[in-house]
Nucleic acid binder design. Structure first.
Lengths: 191, 191
DNA sequence: GCTTACACTTGACCTATGTTAAGAAATGAA
DNA sequence: TTCATTTCTTAACATAGGTCAAGTGTAAGC
């Protein structure tokens, strides 16, 4: 499976598209590269694109009134990243998106995205399932944050997502888990 | 707008359907009533239906290993309710859904739901947007739970969702906010 | 290979929220 | 109206995790 078709491969997992559709989809996306530490989106800007990560690792975060960064997403290969609130409303975003590794992405603008969905209704199905799963996931993260200890959340992440510990600094993982780096350090020591 | 067509009214907000589609949709749903304190789903069962609330108020919650209830959703008129993880996978649910008021609902089974989506592709669009919004919402609730104080969350809920305080006991609101009733009581006293 | 910045750990102390237990107030059924 | 149940509040005490400050790795870029 060549890199170029990873996106198509994932779309086909949940919906059926014609060869013609495939070409229309691929030609709507533009391939971009981004270096480690560079930003894809800066708070205050409108999130113009939604990105499919073909290779690499990125984080999205916001900065609170005290200047502290809070990470709400860490995404790696074969996942989507954007501030979807800003992307779909085309209002300015409060989030930043930054590459944690040199990364390769496929991007599509809001306008082209809406057009593509009208042209290829099968894509509505793909994104319906995508958001459905994302929603289920967000709810389970919410439950864990509300009702489980930081240690339980850490252990679950270690089990479910071990690769992230190879590729992402603990400071960011701590923030993603909703705790400080100091607390994460203490949790790791206890084991 | 008669009660029977509330569902259609909301679907039409985000997608275009024919008069014929409307009939097909309405005939796929079955109208049910449920009394206060009665359950729509009990943990261990498969969530067979997804429900559109035409009138009333329901909560969904799970019971942890210590026997404590944790509420993850409170839904009122013109919203959907289900354990969508169980509904879409047709595996057994860990959640309960209970009516907080005598309620009127429209329900559709998983099988009929999947069929309806195939028959009426425009519905994929409706549910894509629905889940997209639900996802954005869940993420913002997650952020608030991780990084804001209970008091800030309470004030935001009071501002965004004042009706809920008229209709739902504070015990449930506390759980929804991720705190104990005692803490909520202290927060309310401080103001 | 050095240097500098970043990543991680540790310890002392603090605070928001949980826990337990009791009682007051409100609501609904008879 | 009265009684029983549910809902809400209060207080004393406990604790997970935050904050601040310092120090030790460790790795990127020159």
């Amino acid at each position: 499976m060549p890199t170029d078709n990873k996106l198509i491969y994932y779309i086909k997992k949940w919906t059926t598209i014609t060869k013609e559709d495939e070409l229309a989809i691929l030609s709507s996306f533009e391939s971009v590269k981004i270096k480690r530490k560079k930003e894809l989106l800066i708070s205050g800007q409108i999130c113009k694109y939604i990105y499919f990560i073909t290779k690499g690792c990125l984080r999205s975060f916001y900065i609170d009134s005290k200047g502290t960064e809070h990470i709400y997403q860490i995404r790696m290969d074969n996942n989507w990243i954007a501030d979807i609130q800003s992307f779909f409303s085309q209002n300015s975003s409060k989030y930043n998106i930054e590459a944690l590794e040199d990364s390769e992405l496929l991007r599509i603008s809001h306008k082209q995205f809406e057009q593509l969905l009208l042209e290829i209704p099968a894509l509505e199905r793909y994104f319906r399932v995508l958001f459905q799963k994302a929603y289920i996931n967000a709810l389970s993260r919410l439950n864990a944050t509300m009702w489980e200890t930081a240690m339980d959340r850490y252990n679950e992440m270690l089990k479910e997502n071990p690769e992230i510990f190879q590729r992402v600094p603990l400071v960011y993982i701590a923030s993603y888990l909703g705790i400080t780096p100091e607390s994460l350090s203490r949790i790791r020591k206890q084991k």
